[in-house]
Structures are given as C-alpha cells and as structure tokens.
C-alpha cells in the first residue's frame, strides 16, 4: 500500500505524460467490499501512472464474470471492450491489430480462462501477442453465487455442490505448456509484488500471463484455502523479491553480494531485478519453472514471483510486416488497389 505522502504526491504530481494518478482511475467498484479484484485494480492504476503510459495508449479487454466487470473500475480514459464469456482472447487479438502502438490489458477470471475459455487462452498464448493477460483467480464462480471453478482445490467444500473431486487446473502450468514468454503468479494480498510484476508485464514484448490469486470474500474465503486472504498469506512462498527498473533510471540499488540478484533486461530496455530469497531461481529456465510449479502443488505452497520469462522471442506483430502508421488510420489510397490493377486482374481470370 502507498503511504500517505505518496498518495498526496500522486494527486498533484504529473508524470511524464502529463497525467496525475486520478487520470488513471475508473468508476467506483461495485464488487464486494474486500474483493481481491479491487486491490488489483488499484495496482493497475498505480503501475500505469508510474510507468508514464498515457491512458489513451491502453486498451482494456475482459470476458464475463466478477473479474471481467472490473475494467470499468480503472482507466476510464482507456477504450475497453467487455466481450463474451471465455472469448476475450480472440476479441483482444483482433482489436490490437487496429493499432499496434497500444498496450493491451486483458482481465479474466479462473472460470473465464481455465473453463469456458481454455482454448482461446492457450491459442492466444501460443501466438505470443504483446498484451498483459491477468487472471484474477479466486477458485470460485462469484457472479453466479458460488460454484466450483476449474482452479478450485481438490477437496474444497461448497454449500450446494458438496466436495470438489477433481484436481485443479494450474493456469501458470497451462501458460507454460503453451509456450508463454512471460508467466508470473502473484497474490492480491501482496500489492507491491503485483505492481512490480504488472510493470514488467506491461514492458514485455509478448504475451504476459499474470495469475493473481484474488480472494473472493463472499463465496470462497476459507482460511485453509490458498485462495483466501488468510490461507494465501500463510502459504505464500515468494521465489524472489521483484523490482522493476525503468530503462531511463540509472540502476542504483544497494550492493548485493554476487549471486544475490538476477537481472532480466526486457525488450524496451527496462529491467526486472530479482532478489534472491531462500533459494536461487532462474526464471529463464522453462524446465525449472515446470518443476517449481509441480513441487509447489505437492507441498501445497503458493509460489509467487516471475516464474518464467523469454524476453526476445518475436511477438505476433513481429511476424507481420505492419506499417508504422496504425492500420486503423490507413486511408483509402493505401487500402484499395489502384484502378489500373483491375484490368490485369481480369486478364488473370481468362
């Protein structure tokens, strides 16, 4: 959380794109008091403000569910499209081609992504489109008042359906398996980490999947579940301490001993500095990431941090030779073949 001085500062201090923090705000939230999604919304606002991204340079997307309602609670000056249940990825992909200079920000939930939307999610990831894809993961269907989500832990008891008999879907594992180039897990109760990971994700040139455990205080706040605040806090095991360092900033951080930190330089020249906690963790080792997720599942730990990153794989946009001018600003003379071409075309049809 920001301290009072920081709050006051952000109200009056304009960033490099002439915006104060309030320029990134949305409408008041209609989600439950204490919902993890509200905390994530707040970190999105701060991250975008601090990253100096003009709100007009961001486009929001969402599917259906509590999570997908939240894009109205931040970035009112950004365009947004609240699409269909599980089908946000295709919508976002098409829309982002309209202007490749925009930052795509997708908000989904665990049901929206890992149940109805699993196919579109995995194909979006596979295509490596540059956008941030946040899963606000609470392990429950909130908007329909408490049914099992695909990420619900085995053995979870719900009021009407009884006990969940199935293994949960691990969204980070699915993203990794689909060759995601940025996979992170965080916890809405750890706002600093959420913010730093968000900044890194927004600077990544490719798909950035952020699986954020975001407690549902109304339908799924059992203290023994890692989807609750208490459970999450108790079980959270950060892989490292994440600090995002913008490209313009001279890197002056306290001296670490050798092997204490790992720096990952991102596509735009900014950097993620990962400070070692208990064990060293190499986030560029995909095999290790799988292993880590597997271990954490067995140990019932909520592993958080940057699980995997591959900063330089070509993005979907790199596979097309797009003009500098955004496609949606091209005018007729650049879109319609010249008149003299029709004669040649007809000749080809003889």
């Amino acid at each position: 959380m920001m301290n009072t001085d920081a709050v006051v500062h952000s109200l009056v201090h304009t960033n490099t794109v002439e915006c104060v923090r309030n320029d990134y705000k949305g409408l008041p939230s209609t989600l439950c008091q204490g919902c993890g999604h509200n905390s994530i919304a707040s970190q999105i606002i701060t991250a975008c403000y601090e990253l100096n991204i003009s709100p007009e340079k961001i486009v929001k997307f969402s599917g259906i569910g509590c999570s997908s309602k939240s894009p109205t609670y931040f970035l009112s000056r950004s365009f947004g499209f609240n699409g269909l249940h599980g089908r946000m990825p295709s919508l976002a992909l098409g829309a982002l081609f309209a202007d490749h200079t925009l930052h795509g920000l997708g908000i989904s939930g665990d049901g929206d992504t890992a149940s109805i939307g699993m196919g579109q999610f995995k194909h979006l990831v596979r295509r490596n489109i540059p956008m941030v894809y946040i899963v606000e993961n609470n392990g429950v269907y909130g908007l329909t008042k408490g049914q099992f989500a695909p990420t619900a832990e085995k053995g979870l008891r719900l009021k009407r359906q009884g006990v969940n008999a199935f293994q949960p879907v691990d969204i980070c594992m699915e993203a990794l398996a689909s060759n995601a180039t940025f996979v992170a897990r965080s916890f809405a109760g750890d706002p600093k980490q959420v913010k730093e990971l968000l900044k890194a994700a927004l600077s990544h040139n490719g798909i950035a999947v952020l699986d954020i455990i975001s407690p549902c205080v109304t339908f799924h706040n059992h203290e023994n579940s890692m989807h609750s605040y208490m459970g999450g806090k108790a079980l959270e095991a950060p892989l490292h301490e994440v600090t995002y360092v913008p490209s313009r900033e001279e890197i002056v951080i306290d001296c670490f001993e050798e092997g204490e930190t790992r720096d990952v330089i991102l596509h735009d020249g900014s950097m993620v500095r990962l400070k070692k906690l208990e064990k060293d963790y190499d986030p560029t080792d995909r095999h290790r990431a799988f292993q880590m997720l597997d271990e954490s599942e067995k140990k019932k730990l909520l592993i958080t941090g940057l699980l995997y990153i591959e900063p330089y794989r070509p993005s979907l946009f790199d596979l097309y030779v797009l003009p500098e001018t955004p496609l949606n600003r091209l005018t007729e003379e650049r879109l319609r073949p010249p008149k003299e071409s029709i004669g040649r075309l007809n000749q080809m049809m003889l």
Partner: peptide, 14 residues
C-alpha cells in the same frame, strides 16, 4: 475465435 477476432478488429476500426 475467427468471428471474435474479426469483431475485435472491426471494433478497432479495421
């Protein structure tokens, strides 16, 4: 997904 992409693009002005 095909129609979703096309609708996204149409919304974006393509």
């Amino acid at each position: 997904a095909a129609i979703g992409m096309a609708i996204g693009a149409g919304w974006g002005g393509l």
